[in-house]
Computed example of a mutant assay.
Amino acid sequence: MRYLLALIAAVILGVALYRGIDISRTPDREMTAASQALTVPPANASSAVNATPLEATHPVVPEMLPPPALPISNAPFSLREKTSPGLLIPVQGKVASDLADTFTDARSEGRLHDAIDIMASAGTPVLAVSDGHVEKLFYSERGGLTIYQFDPQRKYAYYYAHLQGYVAGLAEKQPLKRGQMIGYVGSTGNASPDAPHLHFAIFVLGAERRWWEGTAINPYPLLASSGG
């Protein structure tokens, strides 16, 4: 009987101890609660500083591609784009329909003409094709009495040859205006006396800006499109 009472007392004590344990404080539950505390905002969330997402502080920069290549123009060189207004036909009274393209005509010693001839009566006034200045007054065996005019930017030289004479008072470094009379049609140099004309050429000047050096370009399309 004594042993039975002791066994009953032990069972009762074990049940009491089992019910007194707080299973909410187990290690697993404590870890879960701790992790929730890190993710759940505080009660005064309105006063808490909002966290900035990582993407906002370190934005993803898109790959920078080079700009598309500009197309290379294969259009022919055009002085018309460089001059405003356009070039004037340099012989008084002449219009576009009076002109002929003789730029590539053959000349003596295997040369090309590199100019155009504007036929006119001897003594017809010769006019400056654009603004600029007289760079050089010169006499040569082939060109006879000549004028070299530079444009205002000193990029182009305009060459007038076979002149009968200069207008009175013309001088080197003298400023010129488009349409100003500068000389007279003639046949000096190697031109035929039976065919007086103005030999007119345009040269793209080199870096040295020498009146006797340059690259010839065809004046015909520039003058023919100017309308006179």
Rank of each mutant, 00 (worst) to 15 (best):
E213C: 07
T83F: 09
R209N: 13
V15K: 10
A6G: 09
L65G: 08
E81N: 10
L99M: 14
A122Y: 10
H199D: 01
D194G: 08
S24V: 13
V60F: 13
R111H: 02
G214C: 06
K173Y: 14
S46P: 11
L79R: 04
T26G: 08
D101Q: 06
I72A: 13
S46G: 05
T83M: 11
Q174R: 04
R142D: 07
G86L: 14
Y156I: 12
Y220T: 06
A43G: 13
S226E: 01
I23G: 10
G183S: 04
L205F: 06
R210S: 05
A45M: 11
V134T: 10
L99E: 03
P90C: 00
W212P: 00
T83V: 09
I23C: 12
M31F: 12
A224I: 13
K173R: 05
Q180S: 06
T52W: 11
T124S: 00
N44R: 08
I182A: 05
E172F: 13
H199G: 00
G206Q: 03
L145T: 12
H133G: 07
I118C: 01
N190D: 15
M119Y: 12
G169E: 05
S97D: 08
G189H: 02
V185C: 03
D22T: 11
T188F: 03
A216P: 01
V167H: 10
A168T: 08
N44Q: 10
L127A: 06
P41N: 01
M1S: 12
I217H: 00
A115Q: 01
L88Y: 02
D101R: 03
Y148R: 10
